[in-house]
Simulated assay, not measured.
Amino acid sequence: MDQLDIIRYFAALILVLGLLGGFAVVARRAGWMGPMPMLDRWSTPARKRRLSITETLMLDPRRKVVIVRVDDAEHVLLLGADREQVLDRAPAKDEPVFEPLVPDALDAEAENPGASVTRLGQSQ
């Protein structure tokens, strides 16, 4: 086996991997997710989803509690091996908004603990 054969093998490998990658891009753009939902996280969202899982908690190997958000309502579901049960329905709570502190305000608060702290986008 000479050096030319090794170059041909690597060129063929690169060609095959490029074709597979190109097919994956075409499938993702066309919406052909099918049995590969893991590719969905890289696709651009076309619309806002109405259904989302907020939180899950495993109770034991056969049962878990799931909080599902549908539009403006949250449903608490008990999922088991042989049945599902709705435990509670309530209006959905607003998502918490993160407001980072201004670094200078942190220094001022460390020096003077009773002073008010300035948040980004707010003036004193």
Rank of each mutant, 00 (worst) to 15 (best):
P96A: 01
M58K: 02
A108Q: 15
G121A: 02
A108C: 05
A73L: 02
M33F: 14
L15W: 10
E109D: 09
G21E: 13
E111W: 09
R49M: 02
V102R: 10
M1R: 01
L59T: 07
V66P: 01
V68M: 02
E109S: 12
G21L: 12
R29C: 00
G18H: 05
Q124T: 11
R29L: 06
G80S: 07
V70S: 02
P61I: 03
K48L: 05
D88Q: 13
M38K: 08
D107A: 14
E109K: 11
V65L: 14
M36P: 03
A12T: 14
L77Q: 08
E109I: 07
A81G: 11
L19R: 02
D107Y: 10
R89K: 15
A115N: 13
E55M: 13
V86C: 01
V16Q: 08
D82Y: 01
D2W: 14
I53A: 08
L20V: 08
D88G: 01
V68K: 04
E99V: 15
P61K: 04
G34H: 05
E74T: 13
P103R: 13
L79W: 11
L59C: 06
P100S: 14
A90T: 02
Y9Q: 04
V117I: 15
E99D: 04
L57T: 09
A30P: 01
D71M: 10
G21M: 09
T54R: 11
L57V: 06
D72S: 11
R41C: 04
I14Q: 15
A30F: 01
